[in-house]
Design a protein around this nucleic acid. Sequence first.
DNA 1: AAAAAAAGAATGAACATTCATTTTTATCTA
DNA 2: TAGATAAAAATGAATGTTCATTCTTTTTTT
Lengths: 207, 207
Amino acid sequence: MNIHFYLYLCTSKQDIMAKLQKSIDKRNALIKATIELVNNNGFHATAMSKIAKIANVSPATIYLYFENKQDLVNQTYLDVKTKYTDFVFKTYNENISIKDGFELIWKRIAEFNSKESEYSFFLNQCNNTPMIDESSRQEGIKHLQPLLDLWKRGKADGIIKPFSDQILYAYSINPLSFLMMAQKQGHFQLNDHIEEAFVTAWDSIKR
Amino acid sequence: MNIHFYLYLCTSKQDIMAKLQKSIDKRNALIKATIELVNNNGFHATAMSKIAKIANVSPATIYLYFENKQDLVNQTYLDVKTKYTDFVFKTYNENISIKDGFELIWKRIAEFNSKESEYSFFLNQCNNTPMIDESSRQEGIKHLQPLLDLWKRGKADGIIKPFSDQILYAYSINPLSFLMMAQKQGHFQLNDHIEEAFVTAWDSIKR
DNA sequence: AAAAAAAGAATGAACATTCATTTTTATCTA
DNA sequence: TAGATAAAAATGAATGTTCATTCTTTTTTT
């Protein structure tokens, strides 16, 4: 019997909430452990037993929350991707000039890469390997819809180059992933060059 | 007794050459198989026995050529990286304007990505995961020295932005990796947009 | 007291690597 | 040059380990 059906059957509202929180905590601990281990060792060298140990849980318990290892990694990916998108667009609204809107979103992405580099690194790995099921990886950059809309507006106004979203993304957003990796390996400090990086991004896509 | 010492002891020059070729062929077959399997399944799901099967060799034979699995992958990485660098700078010489030199190199890289996408994809995976030993991955983008020299000249002449090589690379070269991945997943056709991609690259780094 | 959740130990498959043997190649002798 | 011999290369099967997953028992919750 799964956790949520079980919760439904409980009587006290407080109990339900406490229980739910506990199971959420456990799931989060598992996802956190997965990110940490996959980042450091890669998917292949990440054993379920190690994930369990770091999450302070028995290996068997993982299977109460996830179907199998693949499911655990897929769900971790989707979780992290959601965190990313939520963070990036939290401060955005459409009533703003093209350039300012782009700057706002770009800087949020940079901030996410910098502050949540564990998450960024994990996403990056997922996007560049066959670690994740194709179905979970979904359709490329669609999750950045507000940014794509902004670009559409920018193209219509003659402010942004009339090129495909793939190109605009490749040149203005994706470089942040590379810079983050370079930072992780100690070749670079993104924070010392944010403005330079932004100018370069804007120069690449502006008309 | 290793292959090369053995070869040294042989008498006929023809024999030596034939023998050497044969062992080179086998090594190449193993490396080719490794690339194919790692690209499709990732390092973790690539069994030595499968590599052996695809290379038409016994699993045990792999260990005549490589110390172990990690060594096989490291050597594969170094091999492919050398192919990449050789291809990219084959047509380059320094007596050329900054912009033309950049265009020449950039288009060679694009061509390599397009024609040798198996290699590119493999390199990309290696650069974004802990699959390769840190020592084999070496020092970032140092292998592109002629390009770094060109940029140095360009900065001195006020033609290229006076930013770090990491930034210039992130914006003008790395996007090609993303576009190649997008192409692999069917979101994009690089060949249909080469000129757009080049213009964007140049706009990003030119002063 | 009953039911669910969690645990640790057990299971079986997969895998990297090694071992014992066979096959191929090269060298030597008549 | 043919045939015998020795050495290396290649092999398929064996080994021991690791790991995902499951099973049975214990603990916790209601």
